[in-house]
Simulated assay, not measured.
Amino acid sequence: MNSIELKSRAKINLSIDVLGKREDGYHLVEMIMQTIDLYDIIRMIELETEDIVIKSNSSDIPLDDNNIVYKAVNLLKNKFNIKKGVEIFIEKNIPVAAGMAGGSSNAAAVLVGLNKIWGLNLSEIELQEIGLNLGADVPYCIAGKTALAEGIGEQLTYIKGLSEDANILICKPNLFVSTKKVYEGLDLKNIQERPDNKFLIKSLEDGDIKSVAENMVNVLETVTSKYHEEIKEIEAVMLECNALGSMMSGSGPTVFGLFENKNDALNGKEKLLQKYTQVYVVNSSEKGVEISG
């Protein structure tokens, strides 16, 4: 019986700009994504029946065909006429519905794992092309690293990322944010401040974390923070604890801060744990989906 275990990593955004909207409703973006060393563990066992069974330690995710992981299995089964099934256990560590691509990352891990278990021999690029059918973030999550994402998020240019000794404090408040509502609330004609992605890419190349932190911009934050004041409050705590910069990731509600000094990040974590449960200090990572062992 074939089985495999994989690490499925989260991402943060160092910038998000929204340039326009396509006729199909998708928004055109230009953003810098960075994988971090916070990951779910995906364990998969091949089944001789055609069943797709999903289990998890988390009650916050669906375990049926509403889960993107189920859709990922189905996609490969149909595309390659596979007559076997799989049992998947998702050990959730990435906060759910957080703007950190947790679901996309899980789907990415399933594609990588089944490619191995079912001997499909697809290249990373072929897997990314298939992954795009599941969501705009899935191709990025397969490879991870740091990338400038354009188009709807699927056109990836890999760039130098944060150094792995950068300390990242992450706090997910107990809020639900609808990505759809955030994008709908964005007035494209009146965006006051946009990220200078060329400058951010150069700062990353120069290893200048201070410059990166001070120039991060997420245009979606203006919308989300209007509904949820807590986002600004969390950023303020991080900045009080000497974060070089702090910003919301994705459409929220997760907030992260970049720190030069690990003790400052840990101090920020202690403060935030007085009010929030999902608080982490992590490093950046140059890996996406990783097969364990």
Rank of each mutant, 00 (worst) to 15 (best):
S105K: 10
L162C: 11
S285R: 01
E87M: 09
E270R: 15
G207M: 06
I16K: 00
S246V: 09
K79S: 12
I231Q: 01
Y70W: 13
I168P: 02
L204N: 06
N263M: 07
V219K: 04
K116F: 14
G25Y: 07
K202N: 13
I82Q: 02
E91Y: 04
T254C: 01
L75F: 11
V177K: 00
N106R: 11
D24Y: 08
P62A: 07
L114N: 09
Q192V: 11
E154I: 03
N13R: 10
K7Q: 10
K71M: 05
L175N: 07
I168V: 14
D60E: 12
L266P: 01
S285Q: 05
D51C: 02
K226T: 13
E46R: 01
S292M: 13
I54E: 00
K271E: 06
E154G: 03
K160D: 08
K181W: 12
D165E: 14
N133C: 12
M33C: 08
S58N: 05
L114C: 11
M238P: 04
V281Q: 03
L188Q: 12
Y39K: 03
N81P: 00
I231F: 06
S178L: 05
L239R: 11
S178F: 06
R194H: 15
L239D: 01
V212Q: 07
N242H: 15
L273C: 13
I4D: 00
A10I: 06
L38S: 02
L258R: 01
G207E: 04
G257I: 02
M248N: 01
F259D: 00
G113M: 13
N242T: 07
E5Y: 08
L134K: 09
D37Y: 05
T254V: 04
N215A: 10
Y183H: 04
L169R: 08
E126W: 10
V281T: 11
F256H: 03
K92S: 12
L175I: 15
I45W: 01
S211Y: 00
I90F: 03
L273P: 08
A98P: 07
S211L: 05
E50D: 14
G99F: 09
I130V: 15
N67V: 09
N57L: 02
K287G: 03
L162M: 11
I130Y: 10
F176M: 11
V217A: 04
G288C: 05
M216K: 04
I94W: 00
K269L: 10
G131K: 15
P139A: 14
N106A: 11
Y227A: 08
G103S: 13
I12E: 06
E286V: 12
T222Q: 13
S59C: 05
F80Y: 15
G144V: 14
Q278H: 13
M44Y: 01
K84N: 07
G99Q: 10
M33R: 07
E164K: 14
K181C: 05
A143R: 14
L76M: 12
G144E: 13
K7H: 08
K7I: 04
D208W: 05
L273V: 11
T179A: 10
M100R: 06
L148K: 10
S249T: 15
A107E: 00
V18M: 10
L6I: 09
A108M: 09
D65S: 14
M248R: 04
I152S: 06
V177C: 02
K83D: 14
G245T: 08
K210T: 15
N13G: 09
Y140G: 10
S251R: 00
L258Y: 00
N13K: 09
T35L: 04
V18R: 07
S8P: 02
A97G: 15
K21S: 02
G103L: 13
L239A: 04
